[in-house]
Each structure stands twice: as structure tokens, then as C-alpha cells.
Design a binder for these strands. Sequence first.
DNA 1: CGACTTGTGTGCGCCACCGCACGGACGCGT
DNA 2: ACGCGTCCGTGCGGTGGCGCACACAAGTCG
Lengths: 259, 259
Amino acid sequence: MLGRQSFVVNAGARLASIQGLRTVNANFQPRQNRLLAALPSADYARLLPHLEPLPLPTGWVIGSANCQKNHVYFIAAGLVTRYCELENGTSTEFADTGCEGAIGIAAFLGGNSNPFWSEVLSPGFAYRLAGNLVAEEFAQNTPLARLLLRYVQALITETGQNAACNRHHPLEKRLCRWLLSSLDRLGSNELAVTQELISHVLGTRRESITAAAKMFESAGLIRHLRGRIIVRDRAGLEAQACECYSVVKREYARLIPET
Amino acid sequence: MLGRQSFVVNAGARLASIQGLRTVNANFQPRQNRLLAALPSADYARLLPHLEPLPLPTGWVIGSANCQKNHVYFIAAGLVTRYCELENGTSTEFADTGCEGAIGIAAFLGGNSNPFWSEVLSPGFAYRLAGNLVAEEFAQNTPLARLLLRYVQALITETGQNAACNRHHPLEKRLCRWLLSSLDRLGSNELAVTQELISHVLGTRRESITAAAKMFESAGLIRHLRGRIIVRDRAGLEAQACECYSVVKREYARLIPET
DNA sequence: CGACTTGTGTGCGCCACCGCACGGACGCGT
DNA sequence: ACGCGTCCGTGCGGTGGCGCACACAAGTCG
């Protein structure tokens, strides 16, 4: 798993940050999630009592590969990476998810499990709904069901585009794409991740990330501290990114209501 | 587009093969498609009058990227590649579809279009259903709707696994994976594709395919003629393939009824 | 304040794959 | 049977990324 070792080692610090999140639970609202936000108020009122709040600490794996997915997790804040781990120990992200989406789509697509992992990269908060409730929404063809289907389409677009991008675009451009889309999802200009983590996400070596980050830093695009990246020149980064960033962004904007 | 030029040049030959298909239409049946085959007979009877038969000639592009998808195409025979084309002219397949699936999922997921291409690699036959009829199936939460959702999940699995595979597995193993899954879909041990086409599908050079094919030929795994590949030792190929082949195959078997 | 964990910078050899260019040969159509 | 076009084989230089190994810096915790 991505950074699973560091998760174990850092457990103390991470628990502290969970505690921190607990104290500010009041700051999170279900409707920070764009899918929930797009619901008509009657539907939202109906579902609200069943939404179970849940902090998302860094390194936490939502379910695990091939396990039963009994809940759908609507992300209100934070960043979750969806990745595929291969037998040789390498891994690559094929999509990531923030407040625009939900984890656990197998719960309502009918398969109940899938062979991939979802891990929290940037801490946040989620509201989860039991799978049988979501299935009932599909049976009734409610707005939530239709929204989730549109989200699934956006997810497929992201995954397919990333597949081609990972094959044909140089690391440097892919890094830009990833930074930009991650920051969009977090609504921030700062990211708390190590180069090691990014390397797993992009399916490359840490050293390659080091080199690219250094280049961007000396070009004044980013500022790089230990385990932190701060974007200083967003337009500059966008100019360096491959088209995949905007293709995917456009599809998400088209498919998921902006609220 | 993949092999689009050769499609134009070969138009004569291809039209002939369409004619050929027309004469043997009687040989195709909607229930060769595994999704339609899995329908309860009442549902099948209801849909049958609306299923529009359609030959799939090699090189034919089903819809085009970003266009309205007004139909869902249930593949009864043949092989269709779903690929992403990048601005630099390169492309890579992220999934392919045969008699286990359907093209045009955007028609019922709600987005109506997507930025990718679907092109017929191996000729066959499809039955299509108007998008509004499929939408009505979803509104009624019929077996067809539930089957299509399970298919979507299998498609996501295939796409995500391929994304990681394309990044980390050597060409040779990816070629084995692709050959095996294509032959499974066709229910055959022979494939009528050129090396050029395979190279576009796998996102690599034609020369690399030449080298790999030669190696497999001298190892007695395949026999290679002009534009044709015949598998002679399937078990041997499976031993060379990466795990992605079996991971994806297992998920399709789990998610889509074998009939 | 000092030790230790964890993340970052750097160098070097290696290899798969890329891009291009061209010769050759298969096999279809006439 | 012959010609022609598509498809396949081969060579060569360039390079991006891999794998490994190690020094150093930045925090953190006692």
C-alpha cells in the first residue's frame, strides 16, 4: 500500500491529527460534498439522518482491495487516491477523489468489492451512507442515484485519460497535472505530501520527483519544504501541465453541478 | 484515430466484408451478447422489438469523441477498442469491449458524451437500443439497468488495472495480456490485426511489436502472418502474461453472468 | 541540547524504449 | 503471372527513467 509503512510509524502523529479534526467537526458540513450539495432539499433532508460523520486521517485506507464495500463515503474535505497495486510491489494511481465525489461505488454498482485501494493523502472528513440505503435510492431512481451515475462517468473519464497520460506524457507534465488537480480538490495552494508519496502515486521513482520539484522551484513555480509543496505561480504550472488536466477538469465541471 | 488512414484506403475491402456480414446476419443473435443473454425472458421479450441490428465493420468508429451518444450498442460479436487520443497524436487503449459489454455508456450514465473513441478492431455485429429507452430501464430499475451497472464496474476495473499495467509492465507481457483478452472476447485463437494497430492500442512503436512477436513466434507460442496472429500455445502465452490479464478476467467473470 | 527518525539531494551505470530510415517480402487484385 | 501497396524486419543513435547507494538536512522527542 502507498506509504503504509510510514502510516504505521507515524501513527502517533496521525492520531493526534485525528483528534485535532474531532475538535473541529463542527466546521464540516455534508453539503461541502458537491454531490450532496446538488441534491434537492427534500432529498437531502431525507438522507441527512442517515449520514454518518467520519474523520479521514492521512494514511487511512477506506476499506481494502477486494473487501466488501458496505458504505458509500461522500468526501466533504480532503483528498483520497485510488490506486492499483501490482504483484511486483509497484503501484499507480488511476484517479483521485475529493469533495466532488464518493468512495465505495462498488456498493451501488452491484459488485460490492473491487481489486483497488483508496487511501487518504490529505486529511479531511467524510459522511457515509449504508450501501443498502444507496441501493434503495437507485431502486427509486432518485436524484442522488442520477448524480452518482454522472460521477461514475467523470471517474471513468479521469481514469482513461490518466491511463493514456501515464503512458505518453513526461513525468514533469504529469506532476503538474497532479499538483493542479489535487489543489483544485483541496481548494488550497498548499499540499502536505512527501516526494516519496507522489512517486508512488505517479508510478515513478522518488528521485525523479526530486529532480522535477527542484526544477519547478528554481523556476519560481513552487516552494518546496519538507513534506510540503506550496504553489507560488499557478498560471505557470498550468502552462507546464499536459492537456489531461484541463480535459478531466472540464468533464468534471460538465458532469457534476457546481452547486 | 487508430488506423483511420488504413480504414479509408481499405474502404473497398471493408465494404465487401460488410456485405459479407449482411448475408450471414441470420447467424447473429442478440443473446450472443452476455448482458442481453442474462436478462429474464420477460425483459428480453419487451426489449427485443427495439433492438436494432447493426454490422460492425473493421475500422468503424462508434460515435466519435465528445459527440452525443444517443444509443447503447450491445456487442454480439467482434472486438471494439476504447482509447484516448492525446494532442501529440499518440493514443492508448484503456479498455476493450466484446460480447460481454456495451458501447455508449454515457447515454445512460447521464453525461451523453465522453472525450474518448471506440473503434472496431475485429469485425462483428451489434444490437443497439435508443438512449431514452435505456434511461427508462434505469427509471424502472429493471434487470437490464442492474446488469449495465455491473458492466460499468467491470469496465472501471479493466481501465484502472490497464493504467497501472501500462506504466509498470514491460511491453512483452502487456502484449500477452492483450492477445489473451482479445481472443477470449472473440472466442477464437486467431486475430486479424496488423502490428501497426497493436502498437497504437498498446501505446508503443510498431517495431517493438515486431520484436516481441518474433520472440513469441520463435518460442512456438504464436504463428504470425501478414496481419494475422494465430495462437499455438495458449498456456505458454498465459505464463508470459502479467497478472493483469487474470485480475481483469476474474472480475468480469464475477460481475457479468456467464449465462 | 543532542540523538534519532524521516525526508531530500546527488551521482553513476544500465537498459528499455523511442524516433527515424530503409530494405524486403507477402499476397491481393487484375 | 505480375505488379503494386501494405505490412513486416532491421539497424542505429539518443534519452528518459530505473535501481542502487550514500551524504546531508530538518524536524522531533527525550
